[in-house]
Amino acid sequence: MKDKELKMILKDACDVPDPVIKDSFIRKVNGMQSAGSISPMQSARSMSPVRVLAVEMHYIRKRVWAFSILAIAVMLITVSRLGEDMILHISDMMPLLAGLGMIEVMRAGMHDMSELEAVTLISAKGALFARMTVIGFGHLLAVAVTAAALAGYGGYSVIGTGLKLIIPYLITTISCMEVERTGFGRENTWSCMAVAVLVIVIREIIYSTGIVILSGVAVPALIVAALAGLQAAELKKTIRLEEYAWN
């Protein structure tokens, strides 16, 4: 018997409260609250999603934002100086951004703070997801700005350029999430940067062989879609890390 089946059996087997008695009691409680004879029921403290994002944005170290801005500046300066292979060279920055971002996202787990997060107002899952959202949007902005600049200087398609920049970024984040689930990854904060460097090296090796994979827009779009699916699966595994590790 699977757990889902057991859950259904237990829920179905439970008797239901008499609706008349229940409604009568709820009306009585509401009446008592209106009359002021008992205190009104208040929800437990909670945080709005906007506040959660703001808290996590504050949690992310300023040096991460500084590096991201520096990376954008380097990419924009490079755009005006490099030749036809500028996209490929600039895309080398993306794994580094991704690695740095993943270190920041996983910092709570790496420093055993996730248990503490679990008992705060924000659930551990919520905190992780909020951090990934904040860093993801920040880096997406970097990609958008760079893609627009490349399109302007080199006459490339903005979408195609953006997709080509996102591919090494996604490959790095997916790999970092896998590594972070290992004992080595958890104990070594900079393992994500090692992954980033490895992605850059592999990318350079493929480029040096002359194999052209990312031509046009359709192929990169398909690759990004596949990687996005993998990323979602990795995210689900990471968010359910405790159950995953236990089982």
């Binding site: 439970c14 008797d15 239901v16 229940k22 009691f25 709820i26 029921m41 208040q42 929800s43």
Partner: peptide
């Protein structure tokens, strides 16, 4: 707080 939701939960718990 959703009293009805918690009423059902507490009822099931007690049951």
């Amino acid at each position: 707080m959703d009293i009805e939701l918690f009423y059902d939960k507490i009822f099931r718990y007690c049951y």
